[in-house]
């Protein structure tokens, strides 16, 4: 394999890893801070992709679709936290599993009712549809670079918000001791609501920007959820930094597995997880 093919695969791996990170970071934040195990997190990714598809065909522009879609996702997150999840913070994980399983069925069926079960494509916006030529035969699409860029910007933003702002301080404090934060007079319920909406928005955004690069299809939410669980298990539960590390690792293993060992590539991610489980049952980054 020559240098340029290798470069293309490496870029693909990083792009896939970063996209996984966007979804998994919400999952791990919601679990790490609020103790909610959210099986419906993959549905938010699916919802994002379908929002991009339907809003882009409605408005004619992916940019508008993403902006509108983000607003809608945040609203959905706020609503779900207010109506359902806020009642489940102190309840058993099993009940959270049941709740979110019910949500998946509802979301999937609503999707099927409103938009059908067909596979759709979303056009890459004209400004980003070019490809960068690498050699005479190989080129790399600008849109994929753009995706990686967006993911990196969002990841950096997430880091800054959590580590450097007042809200972030409240989030971190709420993760370690909810009662203490509350008795200090801070509105922890509001913090939780914001974190939940943030998680929903991140997953949905990932779905929206992924839509033009891949197709939009019914089972996409489940698939991404299971891989995100693997990300969280490898990275260490509740750790955003671990999620980043694990997502990139999975991106590399999956992408290069498809190149070098195509027949068993689907297994490699799980085998990676198995190895990590033996080596470090608590994940790469242990939460302090």
């Amino acid at each position: 394999m020559d240098f340029y093919s290798l470069l293309i695969q490496l870029l693909n791996a990083v792009q896939y890893g970063l996209l996984l990170f966007l979804v998994a970071s919400g999952l791990t934040l919601i679990f790490g801070i609020m103790g909610i195990i959210n099986l419906a997190h993959g549905s938010f990714y699916m919802i994002g992709a379908y929002l991009a598809f339907s809003l882009a065909s409605l408005t004619g522009s992916l940019l508008w679709a993403v902006l509108l879609g983000t607003v809608l996702s945040v609203a959905l997150g706020l609503f779900l936290e207010w109506a359902l999840f806020s009642r489940f913070y102190k309840r058993d994980h099993l009940e959270q599993v049941l709740l979110t399983y019910g949500l998946i069925l509802v979301f999937e069926e609503l999707r099927s009712l409103l938009l059908g079960n067909d596979v759709h494509g979303v056009a890459v916006p004209a400004a980003l549809s070019a490809s960068i030529p690498l050699t005479d035969t190989l080129s790399y699409p600008v849109y994929r670079l753009f995706m990686s860029g967006v993911c990196l910007v969002l990841a950096a933003g997430l880091y800054l918000v959590i580590q450097r702002t007042r809200v972030g301080m409240m989030i971190r404090a709420g993760a370690s001791n909810r009662e203490m934060v509350q008795s200090l007079g801070l509105n922890i319920n509001l913090v939780y609501r914001l974190v939940f909406a943030l998680g929903v928005a991140l997953a949905s955004l990932a779905g929206m920007i992924a839509a033009p690069a891949s197709s939009v299809y019914p089972g996409m939410g489940t698939q991404v959820l299971i891989i995100c669980f693997v990300v969280v298990v490898i990275g260490g539960i509740g750790s955003v930094w671990g999620a980043m590390l694990a997502a990139l690792l999975i991106g590399l293993v999956d992408t290069f597995g498809k190149v070098f060992l195509p027949s068993v590539s689907g297994l490699l991610v799980y085998l990676l997880m198995a190895v990590i489980l033996l080596w470090r049952p608590e994940g790469l980054v242990k939460r302090t």
């Binding site: 359902l84 009940e95 399983y101 509802v106 009712l113």
Partner: peptide, 19 residues
């Protein structure tokens, strides 16, 4: 034929009101 919708809603209601 969209039975998963009422089914899912039933599960949600059940778990909210009947832990």
């Amino acid at each position: 034929i969209h039975w998963q919708l009422p089914f899912g809603l039933a599960i949600i209601l059940l778990v909210v009101f009947l832990p």
